[in-house]
Design a protein around this nucleic acid. Structure first.
Lengths: 196, 196, 196, 196
DNA sequence: AATGAATGAGCATTCATTCAT
DNA sequence: TATGAATGAATGCTCATTCAT
């Protein structure tokens, strides 16, 4: 307030707690990009570098590899929840948003796979929680069509679609997702989130 | 009776060239187990250790990471082909064998995913060939039921099932595979290969 | 007086960023010694060990084998340049300094040889640049005597002397260098740099 | 145990001692080519492969790395000796032959350098012997001109020329050798061995 | 006597994690 | 609180050397 950090200062001033939130956001954003480009096994140092912060900051905010991945996915999950809570939400629109995230983020697929790549040794407790939140968001817009009768069926179907979503280009992955839902007899609107 | 290969061998002495074939088989077997437990990105040294041989032996038999993976999957693919060529083979029996491999081996799932873990930089020409062989084996036993009309649909369905096949225990993975095929309206006999 | 760096350091604890400059200097010094003893093909791990730092530190400061070699030779070349720029510099004094480095460092000989040991596959752009700097430093103090008329002749003569500079002891190498210059009809003062 | 391998088997028949001499010659020839292409540090396995024999045969004939190198150089030295013993031999013709070998073989240069690459740990007693034979061959055709008065001077001059003989192409190396001898005031006929 | 597979140590390189400043 | 250097273990890969057949 008294002074803005001089934009031309060589050494970045200690901006106190204010910087903490900004750094956290930068890390999550950087992680999202790095994951998209190099997958979940990308070096953590690359994330810190992309975020423009030191390695230590990453560890301050996220104690382990799973934590930063969970934070990235948190955002995706929230958008699915928002789509489910939106006025006029239908099974098709919610699934459409979910599908969009599947095609956009290799990491999000990993989440549904409860992939071991995140934490080769331990478990990823956060992943389960996130997965449950997706389940809750989907529940309540039943029926989804096809032979899907229970929530378990629904989540299995999501996993199936995530297995289908491969391919080098975004378009190819979307096409495969569309066909996959069709094979399940389920309709998913090709909507996408307002902002990326 | 004559010999019982230790589950985690402890051999040391140089047994000469006679051991070559045995070592190769031990490596493929070890790789299969390691892959099933840790995925295709598992360290090669773990495979050599499990096989009870030195690192050099692995490299003698398999020049790179893709080669050993191809050797492992080769066996799985061959069993699918045999099931397809067997007398009285039906769509359900062939898919049953394929599904069994999906539930047994994380590596085999990676094959269908044309996973990049094998060769992050280069290409995996063998993997593609193997995938094609699976496709050829499945073709010709149509119709598979459900909405699957083309071979492309069929392979996509296989990918979908592979996405569903998660879970800590073998039984859980089998259960999910069964439900997955059911959601697709396809029948897959729960047979399994004669030998492991 | 204030500090006496152990000849084969035994440090362990992380002393933080303050150690960066010290470590870099230690690495260059260690590399100089290792190169003098074992040539440019010496294992990098030996350099790190002698410097008393981890392997990673070496890679942090020098991305590849050529970089550390260049850093070592940089210092030698600089001293030759200084000798050439010094007040009252003559052909004999400059060659004397150059010769001293030849007798001191197997690596410096390698530089003049444009040795392939540094980069068997790629190129060593720095090495060439350093070689040129030596050439520039020598130029301008002509004539050097003997039959040396061009700069090319001069550099060839340097290469010839470097070929002569063999032998187990420092004294023997100096003796051979002296005779070698004599055979070429060139005078090189047996001076040596002020500090080692 | 019970069965002999069929005599007409694919396996190469044991040709007894006869093959020994042939194998030795093949190994020396292969080593010469490999050394010329990849330098003295080339893997021994490459030599055995090029010679078309097993690794063990190489070790049977040559106990260590220095032995095979010495065998290669033996041939070069012999040709120098022959040139020295030939009718009408002069200082210029003998030096010409020696120079030709210098330009042809990086290994031969290494010999004169008593290079440590051959035997990083131990010494190379054979190398000394070969070096002495070269010295003997050169002696007796004095004077060689220039300021070379003793045999020591002469050998030093040879070392100097070997230091000058660098460059990617054979022609460049020959040119530099010619200039080098000229700078020493010594004449060396550009002859070359009758065959190779 | 020849073969070529096995051994295992050695070197290069990467990266997760810690920690002095 | 942020920085980013240091650590050191893990992994990939290459060979020299041995040795059963």
């Amino acid at each position: 307030m008294t002074e803005h950090p001089a934009p031309d200062a060589v050494r970045r001033a200690n901006e106190g707690p204010r910087a903490a939130a900004r750094n956290r956001a930068a890390l999550v954003g950087a992680a999202r990009e790095i994951y998209a480009q190099h997958g979940l096994a990308a070096p953590l140092s690359a994330i810190a570098r992309r975020a423009g912060v030191g390695q230590g900051v990453l560890y301050r905010h996220f104690p382990d590899r799973a934590a930063i991945a969970a934070a990235v996915l948190e955002e995706n999950v929230r958008q699915v929840e928002q789509a489910a809570a939106a006025e006029g939400a239908t099974a098709a629109t919610v699934l459409g948003v979910l599908t969009w995230h599947l095609t956009e983020s290799a990491a999000f697929i990993g989440l549904l796979h409860a992939d071991s790549a995140i934490s080769p040794r331990g478990t990823a407790p956060h992943a389960l929680a996130l997965s449950e939140r997706v389940e809750r968001a989907l529940r309540g817009h039943a029926p989804y069509g096809g032979r899907l009768h229970t929530t378990g069926d629904l989540m299995l179907a999501v996993a199936m679609v995530s297995g289908a979503v491969t391919g080098p280009t975004r378009e190819e992955r979307e096409r495969r997702a569309r066909v996959a839902w069709h094979l399940l007899g389920v309709e998913a609107d090709p909507v996408r989130p307002h902002e990326e």
